[in-house]
Every structure is written in structure tokens, then in C-alpha cells.
Design a protein around this nucleic acid. Structure first.
Length: 926
RNA sequence: GCCGGGGUGGCGGAAUGGUAGACGCAACGGACUUAAAAUCCGUUGGGGCGAUUGCCCCGUGUGGGUUCGAAUCCCACCCCCGGUACCA
């Protein structure tokens, strides 16, 4: 037996931890202890297994979990699998195997890989979103959404029964004659308020995937996020979730959470709140009016024309006979343009005059009405008032078609002066100042029909014009959102069935709670009906299920089940709640446990990739808020603190043809990478020895540059692997994988071992003598550094501190026991196996998972902080503050202060005085 | 274009107003060894002087500023990464 036998050690302790369920969190927690809920974004069970990039976040959370346990916290650290949805289903389709089977197999493989990393998840809490015991409650939550509505008065979700009550009492503020409506009509009214409702809307239809997709799942290029297939707009009757009702709360509450600023920003942009006003512009014949939305009602006097979206319903009405042909032509062209073409053409504005006119309500001016594709039907009202003096796009359009431009907001005179620009200059060329002048100006030329804004600053002008519009009934304040309701159904097999029945007259009936879950039927043919035809009808695979699944007889009525399934994101919207009480068959989570683990601000630390910024992270917040309103959970936000781990990147290689060459077939040839195919029968042998181009990218299958955790663990052990991944750099940063660097942390572990264990005799090299003062001091300093670094998730510097400390004990004949013990404890969150082994060899019976974290003595680490100041003629001219531990530090500080001042006062003499710690005046110049 | 993050040795990265480059890799020199691996010791931002110990100048994307003192704070610009895009 010699040296650090990591393979034996790791196998031994992993088995021990699993057999003794060391890291299991008790089902009912000890409420006297402080809790810490630390969560990873659970993975979908990929078929190809893990590469070294995946566990980065898992290792980080595991370190924190172990650290927090040692600091006395009651830790919940679970893992599960997001197994429904497109990726799992696509994998099954490709392999021609039922997704239930591939999912089970993949979950098994991933569990094996995760366990090999020594992660301290509570394995008894593992579940997949595909387990009927789980999706039963996903369906149940859906029914909560279905039977709730958003009450604007209390700004919260309430049971739909309360709405019925309000309507009956005439308090709902709805313009309906409830008593005279039949059941179907009543349901229609309710449907327009339910948080889950069916509606015929323009949806993103992806024929190649055979399903509809949510806005969040469609890329900028108008293609599917999964698979990159074309997506078309098309009206279909689908399930929707009324996430828009929560737009303002989703935006406001971002302030409550400690999330990375970029993620908050992405959510804000996605929600896209903008405050402004709705204004009605009557047509000049008075027959109708054009309603527009504007964020700049203070520029109403600057409107010089109107623009409708080409597909706006009023286009027909306002078009004059002579313009009709031109308008038709333009509409046809606009309809034919794809999103991409439209974007490519964004710089050049196009449009056509309709021949019609509208009247500006503030001054009675007749404004020509145009149509143009820079106005989108999908945002605001699909119509705008054009103010070319104060809007870039309107300005470009006006220039192109020679329409008048009017300035109605002027930068303050002082501001213009500071730029060396006159009022006239600005009027001549407002564009020149647009970039630097943000609109906080003073209204000018803004008087008309009984209202004047002249002289008012923009904010004030916005308020007074809004008041005037509201008083005269020509408009009102309005907040617009970019966020759309969430399209919630998919024409796919591998998802949660909806707990919904459709009656023969089209009535919707929720499945009784007692009949949940509605199980996904076992089907041989689960493949989606894909097509190249954008007009192909959606055919949900569940339509091919057996009749006894599809039809249900209740009270003599024959109902058909909803054939769509829920989208990928449904399961991940609430899984963090189920981990709290995973086995509960009667409730989705026990309230008592929920409030213990979630209060006061939700999951304490949530680690995962940034790619879910507007998908999972937004959807989960929405569901959570609904559950909160309904009294089912006790916090308004699910995740208190979020950290996005970076990607691990790796070099990838392409040959002259641009074909990817596997990274392990590349060799160094005179300092340049070259292809190295040994097998002569391989068709690629031709390229042997040819130079390849190096690039840098995300690790993965497509670049053939992935390294598996198993390979690393076999060669160096998983403790080394864990240390290496954390030592690469900050958790949040993307960083390059470099297999050759692994040796560094491996050497460190071997050094630890060698210094504590005699390689010959296998005996511990520790004694009970006291450490030297210097060593004890270094120990305290290290404890402080590691503790602070782990608190702020700076794993790389924590490890560096340990490496540094170990170099202090190198060469010591025997290590004082007290030092060895604390070193092992400090190391254990990061390298648990070697630590556990050393801990036992130090004579402890108990596993060190819950051993107390070592403490440090302030007086041992406190660095005396001294300030050295220099006075010249009674005036302080320089000072240096240093954290000094040795007299040498102090001398250095004094010398520096002196030097700094001397440099500025050449020729003068400095009189030196003694320094006094903390508040000092030391050098006096005369 | 707009929003957000960033730019420090050959490389990954430390340092958030006080000795820039911790720690690791790579590289070079040395010890041990028949040899190699492993291990250990030393050197390693650039330039110059002294060469025994030491000393000086320049250096954190570029240019300015604040300060006794700036990688760090402020202004302008350049470049890279991420998000987003005719959102009225």
C-alpha cells in the first residue's frame, strides 16, 4: 500500500454514504435549526450522458451544501429529472424506442454518473416529472389555474366562484346581462377571465415538429428553439395561460430577488412594460376613430400624420377609391414578407398613403393616414400617431415621403448652450441632437383646442395632457406590455395530459380531483405528425389512443378527453416545491413543510444556466405567484438568490474542408494542431497530418470536443475532478477546459496525503504536540479566507488558500494533530472522499458530513490597520492605510507615505515622527 | 442601434483606493535516479544598472481626469462576449 489510492477511497466512501443514507434530509425537519434550501436546475435525462461541463453547477452546490451543513444548517439539496418534453421525445423518436423506456434508461445512467461524483443529494427525494405521482399534481395545479381568475381590485388570483358571485351581485364591473345568458354564454364570459382558458388565437405553428410553440420557444429568426425548424403564424384554438395578468407583479417583484442583473434585465425586456396613453383620433368624416398608443403624449402637438399596420381593420374604411389598388398591392407585399426579410429591410421605410384623414384631438388638424409595415399589428393598437420631430422611425419615414416635421419639445436653453447649439440649429436638424437629448425638455408650439403645454417640462406635460384626454373622453392613461399570454398546449405525445374533458356541445369539464392523475396512455405509435405544409392540420398523437382512454361516460354524457399535452415547461414550474414533500399522495406539498423550507424568501440559492432567463424562470415565477394568491405557498417569489454558472468551453478543430475533427484525433505538429487519423482504412486517413483550424466553443457533441467525467475520474479521481472544475475560475464565468491543468490540483491532493500519511507504513504522521505560533497563525488565516470565500461562492480562491497553506506544512516531520484536523475539515466540502478517509485515520468514528466547521480567532488574524498621514504646514497632504501584521509592514507603509509626499514637495525637508495606529499624523514638513 | 457584462504575463486567473500579477498550468535551470515517471528546490511581466545582498525605469485595451497614491473612482473612445431589436 503506497500513497493516495483515490480509486479505492472513493468507491469505499461512496458506498458508505449511500448505505448509511448519510446525507438524507429528515422527512420532517428539526424546526429549531435554521434551514438552507439549495437547488440546481434539474437536468433533462440526456441520452448521451454527461460531459464535464454539466456537473459544474452541481459540484458548486454540493460544496455549498456540505459547507452549510458543517456550519449547522439544516440543508435541503435535492435533484430530479425534467423528463417530459421535446428533447426526451426527440431522442426516443430518433432511436425508435418508447420515450418511457429511453427516459428510464437515461435517468438511470445519469444517476450513476452523478453518484460517482460524490454529490450529497438526498437520493430518496429523486423523482422525474414523468412520474404519475408527480404529474398528478402538475395537473392539479393546472386545474387551480383553470378555476381561478385575476381580480384587479385585490391584484391577486381568486377562485372563479367569487367572480360568479360578484357578477350576480352586479359588482364585477362587467357589461353583461348574466341572467339572460345561457350556460354556454356564461362559460364564455368566465373563460375570458380564467387564468387557464381556451381561445382561438394566432399561434406559432411548427409543422416540422407537428406542434404549436410558445413565443418564448421561437427564435428571432422565426424558427423553433428546438431543432431550428420554420415556424408559421396561424389561428388555432388552443389552451392559454393568462400570464399577462401578472405582468406588472412579475416586473415589480424582480426588485425583491437577488438575481444577476442581466437576467433581471432580460425579464424586464421580455415583459416590456411601457407607460403612456391611449388616444382616439376621429376620422375626418366622424364615422369612426383610430385608437393609438403612445409613450409620449406630450408630443401630441407634433403629430403630422398617422400610420396603420397593413393588416389593421380600419384600413379598408379609410382608403379612398383612387388609392385602393396601391393599398391592396402593399398589403399583399407586406403579408408575403417573412420576419427575416422585414428585419433586413428595417433601414428603408416603406408605406402607402390611404387617401384618408384623421383629426388630431388636441388641435383639430387633419392628418393624412398611411399604412406602413414598420407599424406592427401585434403591439399596442396596431396604429400610431407619427411624430417625426421626436421619433427616429417617424423621422426616417417623414424624410422618405417628404412629410412635415414639427418640433414641439425643446431642450432647455442652458443645455443647448452647453453644446454650442442654438434653438434654430436644433429646429433645422433635430436628428443631430436625438442621441444626446433624451426627451426631458420643455414643450413649445403646443397650444390648441382648449389645452396648452407650452413651457411645461416633459414629465409635467405628459401628466397634464393625460388629464385633459381623460376629462374630455378622448383618451386615457395606459400601460402596455410586450408579454403575451402563454400558449400552453402542444400536439405531442410526451407530456402531461390535460385533466380536461370536452362535452358533446363543446362544454369544458375539468376532471375531478379524485380522478387525478389522468395517465398518459401507453401507445406504440407516439410519433408526432410532422409535415412541410404550413397549412397541415394539427394532429395530436393522443387522437390515436384507444377509445376507452379517449372517451369518458359521466352521468350519461359522453365526454372526449383533451388530446393536447402540456409543454415542456409545465413540470419545471413547481418541482422545487415537490422536493419538500416528494412522496405525498394527498397534497402537492404539506403546508407546514412548505413554510419551513420556503420562508421567508424561497429557495435560498438556485444555480443554473442563463438560457432559461425568459422561459423556465419566468413561468415558474408566474405559477408560484398564482399559488401564493390562492394561499397554497407562503412566499411571493420562488427563488431568493440565483446564480448562473458559466459554460465550460473547449477547443474544437476543423480541417481544410471545415469538417469537424474530433479533439482526440488532433496532435501537435511543430507547434500547430494537425489531424492524426491512424487507421488507414478510415476514409479520413487522407487528411492525416494536414493542419486543422482551432476554434473555441461550448463543449458538446456537435463539435466533438467533449470530455466525460468518467474519464477524468478514472485517471485522477473525482476529488481531483471536483477541485479542478472549481479551481478553473469564478463559477459565473465561462472558462476553457484544459485537461493538462488537472495535474496541478491532483498534485495538491497528493501533497496533502503525503504530508499526513507515511507512504511506507501507512501510519498517520501527526503528533499531539502544539503547533508553532506561526503555523497556528497561518491556520487561522486560512480558515478565515476559506470561510469568507465559500460564503461568497469564490471557490477558486478558497482552493488557492488551501494550496498555500499546505505548502506551509510541507517538510515538517510530523504535523500537529490540531492542524491536521482543521485542514481536513476545511478541505472536506471540496474534496470529500480524501477528507473522509483522513478523518477516519485521524481516529474519528463519525462521518465528517456534519462535523462543525472550524472557527478562527479574530485576534490571530486581525491585521493591525494603521494609517500613516503626512502633514505639511498643518494640512494633511498624504496618508497610507495598511493592514499590517509585522513591524516590517509598518515601516513599509511609513516609507511609502513619506515618499509620496516627498515627491510632491521636492526640496523641502520632512520631519519624521512616530506612527500611532489608526489615527495619526506622523510626518511634519517644515 | 439599444440594454447588460467584460478587457490584467505564454495560458486559466488573484488583487474593489495602498508593495499589481496570489494560486495553478506551461517554460527554463538544478537535486534525486542507470533511465524515465513521480517528487523536491530555484527562476519566470518587459527593459536597464549592479552583479555579493541589491537598485532604477516602464507596465492592468486607448486617451484624459480626480487623488499623496488608481487595475480599482470619473469622462471620452476602441475591442470582445451575452441579450434584444421598426415595441410607438
Amino acid at each position: 500500500m503506497a500513497g493516495y489510492q483515490f480509486a479505492d477511497i472513493e468507491a469505499k466512501w461512496q458506498k458508505y454514504w449511500e448505505d448509511h443514507k448519510v446525507f438524507q434530509t429528515p422527512e420532517v425537519p428539526d424546526e429549531t435549526r435554521q434551514k438552507f434550501y439549495i437547488l440546481d436546475m434539474f437536468p433533462y435525462p440526456s441520452g448521451v450522458g454527461l460531459h464535464v461541463g454539466h456537473p459544474l453547477g452541481y459540484i458548486a452546490t454540493d460544496i455549498v451544501a456540505r459547507f452549510k451543513r458543517m456550519r449547522g444548517f439544516n440543508v435541503l439539496h435535492p435533484i430530479g429529472f425534467d423528463a417530459f418534453g421535446l428533447p426526451a421525445e426527440q431522442f426516443a423518436v430518433e432511436h425508435g424506442v418508447h420515450p418511457r423506456i429511453t427516459t428510464e434508461r437515461n435517468v438511470g445512467n445519469m444517476l450513476r454518473q452523478l453518484k460517482k461524483l460524490g454529490l450529497t443529494y438526498d437520493w430518496d427525494r429523486v423523482f422525474s416529472t414523468t412520474d404519475p405521482g408527480y404529474y398528478k399534481w402538475t395537473q392539479w395545479i393546472f386545474l387551480q389555474l383553470y378555476s381561478s381568475y385575476y381580480d384587479p381590485e385585490s391584484r391577486a388570483a381568486r377562485p372563479i366562484a367569487e367572480l360568479v358571485e360578484k357578477i350576480e351581485q352586479g359588482r364585477a364591473g362587467l357589461d353583461v346581462e348574466w341572467d339572460r345568458l345561457d350556460a354556454a354564454e356564461r362559460e364564455e364570459v368566465l373563460a375570458s377571465h380564467r387564468l387557464a382558458y381556451m381561445a382561438e388565437v394566432d399561434v406559432n405553428w411548427c409543422p416540422a415538429l407537428g406542434t404549436v410553440l410558445a413565443n418564448e420557444e421561437v427564435t428571432n429568426e422565426g424558427r423553433s428553439e428546438r431543432g431550428n425548424y420554420p415556424v408559421y403564424q396561424r389561428p388555432l384554438r388552443q389552451w392559454m395561460l393568462r400570464i399577462t395578468a401578472y405582468a406588472d407583479r412579475l416586473e415589480d417583484d424582480l426588485e425583491l430577488v437577488s438575481w444577476p442583473e442581466p437576467i433581471k434585465m432580460m425579464q424586464r425586456n421580455w415583459i416590456g412594460r411601457s407607460e403612456g396613453a391611449l388616444v382616439d383620433f376621429p376620422l375626418d368624416d366622424g364615422s369612426d376613430s383610430i385608437r393609438v398608443f403612445t409613450t409620449r403624449p406630450d408630443t401630441l402637438f407634433g403629430a403630422t400624420y398617422m400610420v396603420l399596420a397593413p393588416e389593421h381593420p380600419l384600413v379598408e374604411k379609410v382608403t379612398s377609391a383612387e388609392q385602393e389598388a396601391a393599398i391592396r398591392e402593399y398589403q399583399r407585399m407586406a403579408a408575403g414578407l417573412s420576419e427575416v426579410d422585414r428585419m433586413a429591410d428595417a433601414k428603408r421605410k416603406s408605406g402607402v398613403f390611404t387617401g384618408g384623414y384623421a383629426v388630431n384631438p388636441v388641435n383639430g388638424e387633419r392628418l393624412p393616414i398611411w399604412i406602413a409595415d414598420y407599424v406592427l399589428m401585434g403591439y399596442g393598437t396596431g396604429a400610431i400617431m407619427a411624430v417625426p420631430g421626436h421619433d427616429q422611425r417617424d423621422f426616417e419615414f417623414a424624410k422618405q415621403f417628404d412629410l412635415p416635421i414639427r418640433i414641439v419639445v425643446m431642450p432647455p436653453a442652458a443645455w443647448l448652450g452647453s453644446k454650442g447649439v442654438s434653438k434654430e440649429d436644433y429646429e433645422k436638424n433635430p436628428e443631430a441632437l436625438k442621441d444626446v437629448f433624451d426627451g426631458d425638455g420643455i414643450s413649445v408650439n403646443s397650444s390648441g383646442s382648449g389645452v396648452s403645454l407650452d413651457g411645461q417640462p416633459s414629465d409635467e406635460a405628459k401628466r397634464s395632457i393625460s388629464d385633459w384626454l381623460e376629462q374630455t373622453g378622448q383618451g386615457r392613461r395606459e400601460i402596455q406590455y410586450k408579454l403575451r399570454d402563454w400558449l400552453f398546449s402542444r400536439q405531442r405525445y410526451w407530456g402531461e395530459p390535460f385533466p380536461i374533458l370536452h362535452g358533446p356541445e363543446g362544454q369544458i369539464r375539468p376532471v375531478d380531483d379524485d380522478d387525478l392523475p389522468v395517465r398518459l396512455p401507453d401507445m406504440e405509435d407516439f410519433k408526432p405528425t410532422a409535415s412541410d405544409d404550413p397549412d397541415a392540420p394539427p394532429r395530436p398523437p393522443l387522437g390515436r389512443a384507444t377509445e376507452d382512454w379517449r372517451f369518458v361516460q359521466i352521468d350519461g354524457v359522453r365526454y372526449e378527453r383533451e388530446l393536447n399535452t402540456m409543454p415542456q415547461w409545465a413540470g419545471s414550474c413547481w418541482y422545487y416545491l415537490r422536493f419538500i414533500d416528494p412522496g405525498n399522495e394527498n397534497q402537492f406539498v404539506r403546508p407546514k413543510l412548505e413554510s419551513y423550507w420556503m420562508k421567508p424568501t424561497g429557495v435560498d440559492l438556485y444555480v443554473g444556466g442563463a438560457e432559461h432567463a425568459v422561459l423556465h424562470l419566468l413561468y415558474a415565477r408566474f405559477w408560484h405567484k398564482v399559488l401564493y394568491d390562492l394561499g397554497q405557498v407562503s412566499t411571493s417569489e420562488p427563488f431568493a438568490r440565483l446564480v448562473n454558472q458559466g459554460y465550460i468551453q473547449a477547443y474544437a478543430y476543423r480541417d481544410e474542408r471545415g469538417v469537424v475533427v474530433p479533439a482526440d484525433e488532433v496532435v501537435d505538429q511543430d507547434g500547430r494542431p494537425a489531424s492524426d487519423v491512424q487507421d488507414q482504412s478510415d476514409r479520413r486517413y487522407f487528411w492525416d497530418g494536414k493542419p486543422v483550424r482551432q476554434e473555441f466553443g461550448k463543449m458538446g457533441k456537435s463539435l466533438k470536443n467533449a470530455t466525460g467525467p468518467d474519464e477524468v475520474s478514472t485517471e485522477y479521481g473525482c476529488d481531483t475532478f471536483r477541485l479542478y472544475e472549481m479551481y478553473l475560475g469564478p463559477l459565473e464565468a465561462s472558462k476553457p477546459w484544459s485537461t493538462r491543468d488537472i495535474i496541478g490540483v491532483h498534485r495538491f491532493l497528493r501533497r496533502v496525503w503525503r504530508n499526513l500519511v507515511d507512504e511506507e507504513s501507512d501510519a498517520m504522521l501527526v503528533d499531539d504536540g502544539p503547533p508553532t505560533e506561526a503555523l497556528e497563525r497561518a491556520m487561522h488565516k486560512t480558515i478565515k479566507r476559506v470561510t469568507d470565500d465559500l460564503e461568497r461562492l469564490s471557490f477558486n480562491t478558497a482552493i488557492a488558500a488551501l494550496i498555500e497553506f499546505v505548502s506551509e506544512i510541507v517538510g515538517l516531520e510530523r504535523i500537529p494533530r490540531s492542524i491536521a484536523e482543521r485542514l481536513v475539515l476545511l478541505l472536506s466540502p471540496m474534496a470529500p472522499h480524501i477528507s473522509e478517509e483522513l478523518w477516519r485515520r485521524l481516529g474519528y468514528e463519525e462521518t465528517l458530513g456534519y462535523e462543525p466547521w472550524p472557527t478562527y480567532d479574530e485576534s490571530m488574524v486581525a491585521e493591525e490597520e494603521i494609517t500613516i498621514a503626512v502633514q505639511v504646514n498643518g494640512k494633511v497632504r498624504g496618508s497610507v492605510t495598511v493592514a499590517a501584521q509585522t513591524p516590517k509592514d509598518k515601516v513599509l507603509a511609513r516609507a511609502r507615505a513619506e515618499e509620496n509626499v516627498a515627491r510632491h514637495l521636492e526640496g523641502k525637508t520632512l520631519r519624521r515622527e512616530i506612527y500611532v495606529p489608526r489615527k495619526i499624523v506622523n510626518f511634519v514638513v517644515q
